[in-house]
């Protein structure tokens, strides 16, 4: 009987060995994509616009929300889907503040995302919008459940009419939050 008890204790000890060596309060860099897809209606109207509310809490695993320690962003990207033989002019905003502008650039060039950090010459980034991104990420850190970002866009196509179906323009802000795992 003593042997059985000894073995049970040993198994229990071995089974729990792994839990004693875990860093307490380690930070996981959690991806926080803030993204809006602006679908463009097919037809003779070359102008398009749209506005989307992005609740930041919905973009990450819910278990992290109460333990966010830092937030940052590292890129702004613009891309397109669908085929259009013409150019696009668009202004993208965050909370009504200008973030990114595309001035009559070929639609097809955005099949590969054009990004701020890659130094794309096809997009212009506005510091007012960048500051707003930083401000809203700070809001998210303080009040994760209440932070909603408004991404909007106003634009025009030119060079091909009518507009074919299946076109969309995507604006993305790539951000991270540090979530503490206790």
């Amino acid at each position: 009987m003593k042997t059985n008890v000894l073995l049970l204790l040993l198994i229990g000890l071995l089974a729990t060995t792994g839990s004693t060596c875990i860093n307490d309060g380690f930070l996981v860099a959690v991806n926080l994509p803030i993204k809006a897809t602006f679908n463009i209606n097919a037809g003779p109207n070359l102008a398009f616009s749209g506005s989307y509310n992005v609740k930041l809490a919905d973009q990450i695993d819910g278990s992290y929300l109460e333990n966010i320690k830092n937030a940052r962003f590292y890129d702004v990207r613009v891309s397109t889907t669908g085929t259009y033989n013409g150019t696009v002019y668009v202004v993208g905003n965050i909370d009504g503040k200008q973030l990114v502008t595309v001035k009559n650039q070929p639609w097809s060039s955005f099949a590969t995302p054009q990004s701020l950090i890659a130094g794309s010459k096809l997009i212009e980034i506005d510091s007012v919008g960048l500051n707003q991104v930083g401000k809203r990420l700070a809001d998210f850190k303080a009040a994760p459940q209440a932070t909603v970002v408004v991404l909007s866009a106003n634009g025009t196509l030119s060079g091909q009419s009518p507009v074919p179906s299946g076109l969309a323009l995507v604006v993305e802000i790539l951000a991270q939050v540090d979530a503490e795992v206790k």
Partner: peptide, 25 residues
């Protein structure tokens, strides 16, 4: 921090295990 664009930052996660021996039984 991004070398030329102010305000852009990127981070790797912290380590999970703090140990000099990785065990298994």
């Amino acid at each position: 921090q991004h070398a030329t664009v102010p305000g852009l930052e990127y981070k790797g996660s912290d380590g999970v295990f703090n140990t000099s021996i990785f065990p298994l039984a």
